[in-house]
Computed example of a mutant assay.
Amino acid sequence: MQIKKPIWSLTPVMVATAIFCCVLWGSASPAIKIAYELFGIPASDTASRLVLAGTRFVLAGVMTIIFGSLVSRQVLTPKIESLKYIGALALCQTIGQYFFFFMSLANTSGVRGSIINASGNFLAPIFAIFLFRLEKFEVKKLLGCFIGFFGIFLFLGGSSVLAGGKMTMAGEGAMLMAALFYAISGCSIKIFSKFENPVVLSGYQFTLGGIVLLGIGLLMGGSLSFTSMGCYLNLIYMGFISAGAYTLWGVLLKYNPVSKVSVLGFVNPIMGVLLSALFLGEESQAFSIVSVISLILVSAGIIVVNAKRN
């Protein structure tokens, strides 16, 4: 008797879902920059920026828990012993990463942010091999990291001439810090998921990290002014970006080989650049010679790092 394969393991469904996740993640940069305009948050208003980030991730956490519970057909709750894992992830993945991510996008373009943020895809395997000892040394992974980093360095070196504007620590530097925290949290969740459902870890760490960011922002005097329906819709969408993408990506990893899913991550920076061009009017940066070449190298690097060895 032939056993019917889960729908998520069918290649067309897997590819389409993975690309959809990448579209969601790629839309984060333009969505946040649009939010700054809708809520009237200037680059200097760190407190309100933290309130926005915190509110987004509280929503994302609640949505992730609800979506995950519906998919698993049971209410997802963490084990007591998993609280320390949730706290550690909240510190790295939400508080650390998105403090710098939101800071960066207040001080740089969506195109620049999308390309520089891709460095997390290359820091993660380096940390996994040399720091956390989670993976074996492979030449192809280091080759992929070299290709990707070369693309990013090319972009950093040439963007000031062809993409307009100089680099700053509050802009490009902050995005590199966000990528660093992304890499650490990626390795951490790989370790912690041995003891707890990764959707549970993501949902509850989003909520905890969001509460901390929101609390700090409010204590600093930050606030959000909901002046139009667009403010509400933007905030809900930003919450859905994380909740929908992480939940669906987790489902794909459950029913498919990790390398088969992860290799499609090259679509992420491409979507970030294209959507920034579409919604933020950054066509001159997105389609400059330096940006295109850098994006090709970054995408190639992600493919090489995640390609399955024969």
Rank of each mutant, 00 (worst) to 15 (best):
Q2T: 13
I7L: 13
W8D: 01
L10W: 11
V15T: 09
V15K: 05
I19C: 03
C21V: 04
G26K: 03
A28C: 07
S29N: 02
P30F: 08
I32Y: 08
K33L: 07
I34W: 13
E37W: 01
L38M: 14
I41F: 11
D45T: 11
T55W: 02
T64V: 10
I66C: 08
S82M: 08
K84L: 07
G87H: 04
Q97A: 10
F101Y: 15
M103A: 10
S104V: 09
G110D: 05
A118Q: 04
F122G: 02
A128I: 04
I129F: 14
L131T: 02
R133A: 10
L134G: 09
E138S: 10
V139E: 03
K140H: 14
C145H: 09
I147R: 13
I152W: 05
I152G: 11
F153T: 03
L154W: 10
G157M: 04
G157P: 10
G158N: 00
V161G: 00
L162S: 14
A163I: 02
G165E: 08
G173H: 15
L176A: 02
A183K: 13
I184V: 15
S185I: 10
C187V: 05
I191R: 13
F192Q: 00
K194H: 12
T207L: 15
L208Y: 12
L208Q: 07
G210S: 04
G210K: 01
G217A: 08
L224D: 09
F226S: 11
S228K: 06
M229F: 09
N234D: 08
Y237W: 15
M238R: 07
S242L: 02
A243Y: 12
T247M: 06
L248I: 07
L248K: 01
K254P: 05
Y255C: 00
S259D: 06
K260L: 02
S262R: 08
L264A: 07
N268S: 11
S276H: 07
E282A: 06
E283L: 00
A286I: 04
A286W: 02
A286T: 00
S288I: 06
V290G: 01
